[in-house]
């Protein structure tokens, strides 16, 4: 199923430009993401972090009046030329900033993606739902009430439900977009533990507004500012005393941004 290319890069982005109408928000950025690493993406609001993720799984297509140029390849394939865009999106799990429990039962929330993909056998679905909820550290809390509505869960539970849903289509890449802004620190730490577990078999892109979160989790960290990459290096370097760009140090130390 995975056509492993010679390169160990899982995702390659080359000269990516994105504009909404006449306003360009990403100005030709290039970088690689290695297989099974956690890439932290930090940067202030409006720096193009979310837009970048939306280009990756092509949900940018749903926003009218956008123009994308450059290439993004996943496993050596250009995502903008992909014909089965639904399969592409299933390959990439996406967790949005605000938890979104769909107005379906907890079970149906997790089973939604496999069902959309045509998996309908009850036994397999049951197994899949349990596995995903366990991976998202939610199973013990909800196993007795899988029929109740996903929207009635607490914020932190809904966010883990969202993660379970993102895992349900067995993605190879997991993107988390500021997943912790709506949940408390304790739950955040639980989810961070989950992520450490998951990195063994998937590539994770962690967009975060908490620089310390990137420091705790990421192997490499990218500082994105106003649609340009200020610096991309191992997390140790970025958070050290001597990053190459002084803006990086200022940002991670909270001096600006």
């Amino acid at each position: 199923m995975v056509n492993v290319t010679a390169s160990e890069n899982h995702i390659e982005v080359r000269e990516l430009r994105l504009s909404y109408g006449v306003k360009e928000v990403i100005h030709g950025i290039s970088f690689d993401i290695r297989r099974n690493e956690i890439l932290g993406v930090i940067g202030p609001a409006q720096s193009g972090k979310t837009s970048l993720l939306r280009c990756l799984n092509r949900t940018i297509d749903f926003t009218p009046d956008t123009h994308v140029s450059g290439t993004i390849t996943v496993d050596g394939e250009d995502v903008r030329r992909v014909r089965n865009v639904y399969a592409l999106r299933r390959k990439i799990g996406m967790v949005a900033p605000l938890p979104v429990g769909l107005p379906l039962s907890i079970y149906d929330n997790v089973a939604f993606a496999p069902r959309s993909a045509g998996l309908n056998r009850k036994g397999e679905l049951d197994l899949m739902v349990e596995q995903c909820l366990r991976q998202a550290a939610l199973w013990d809390e909800v196993k007795d009430r899988l029929d109740s509505l996903g929207t009635k869960l607490s914020g932190g539970q809904q966010q883990r439900l969202t993660i379970a849903r993102a895992l349900s289509h067995q993605p190879e890449i997991l993107c988390l977009d500021e997943f912790s802004i709506a949940i408390d620190p304790v739950t955040t730490m639980r989810i961070e533990d989950v992520l450490k577990e998951l990195r063994r078999h998937m590539t994770i892109i962690l967009v975060t507004n908490l620089t310390q979160q990137a420091r705790r989790l990421a192997d490499r960290t990218m500082f994105l500012w106003k649609g340009e990459i200020v610096e991309l290096d191992t997390t140790n370097v970025i958070f050290s005393d001597k990053p190459r760009d002084s803006r990086t140090r200022d940002y991670v130390e909270g001096i600006f941004g």
Binding site: N57, F62, S116
Partner: peptide, 11 residues
């Protein structure tokens, strides 16, 4: 956001 969540999982 419901629609986006669905699109994100490949629906």
């Amino acid at each position: 956001s419901f629609r986006e969540a669905c699109w994100n999982v490949g629906a």
